[in-house]
Computed example of a mutant assay.
Amino acid sequence: MSLALETSAGSVAADVFMGRDADILTEIASPGVAAAIWQRTPEPGFQSWIDGLGKDQLPDLRTVVPVHLAEAAVITACETSGLKASPERDVLASDIGALAVMMAKILAVDHVRLRLDVADEVMCPKFHIDRVPARLLCTYRGSGTEYVPLGSEAGPKRIRRVKRGAAALFRGTLWDTDETTGILHRSPEVTPEDGPRLLLVIDPVA
């Protein structure tokens, strides 16, 4: 059942769908859905590994690639940062590659824009909607992205947080329907306890 709101400007997609199966991400194309979140729990060994890395070892990446080269681009970024080959590094690269393939399939594109942001301060502190058709976010280290219904930004009790390791697909302002996106998101605070945050961002490229 959709919770899309009717306004004078048309309908507003306000639903957030969550599930433990990757197919939940395809729900982003359903009427009334502003975000779809694939709930995942990182394997403890992988999480301990990535949490123990120094900031300079975390891969920093900005590139546009054919979707089948996304995994290779991450491996190159890891090598550039001095992150030595290991089973955990392979897990990181293959996971990002798989998420890129899913995103590209859902949005029907052949290329994606990949970003791995390493940050020890808040990057986007204000709630916003991205100027893209859709954006996939996955926090591998640190606190997950926060989101809130449009118009509820001032109500702390309405704010929710994507869990670390979960893949969240948010509609942007360029989503190709008559619906307005009714879910905003922002970066969380970065705490000294968590250390630098590592965030994956994937955008479709037409």
Rank of each mutant, 00 (worst) to 15 (best):
E121M: 06
E146W: 03
F127G: 03
T139W: 11
V122C: 08
P125R: 10
P125I: 13
R131Q: 14
G151E: 14
A134M: 01
E146A: 00
G142I: 03
E146G: 05
F127Q: 05
R135D: 06
K157H: 09
T139S: 10
R131S: 13
P149W: 14
R135C: 00
G151M: 07
F127D: 09
G151P: 11
M123S: 11
A154L: 14
V148L: 12
C138A: 11
Y140V: 10
K126P: 00
A134R: 04
T145M: 10
G144C: 10
K126D: 09
S152I: 02
S143A: 15
L150N: 08
P133K: 05
A119Q: 09
T139D: 02
A154I: 00
L150D: 07
S152A: 15
M123N: 03
T145Q: 10
S152T: 01
P149D: 13
F127C: 05
D120N: 12
P125H: 06
M123I: 15
E153Q: 15
T145S: 09
Y147L: 06
G151L: 14
C124G: 07
P149R: 11
A119V: 14
G142H: 08
V122E: 02
V148Y: 08
E153F: 07
S143P: 04
E121G: 10
L136G: 00
L136P: 01
G142P: 08
T145V: 13
V132M: 14
C124K: 04
S152Y: 03
A119W: 02
R131H: 12
E146V: 01
P133V: 00
R141T: 10
L150G: 02
D120W: 08
P156W: 05
A134V: 05
C124H: 05
K126Q: 03
K126H: 14
Y147T: 05
D120H: 12
R135Y: 00
G144N: 02
E146Q: 15
K126F: 01
V122P: 11
S143Y: 11
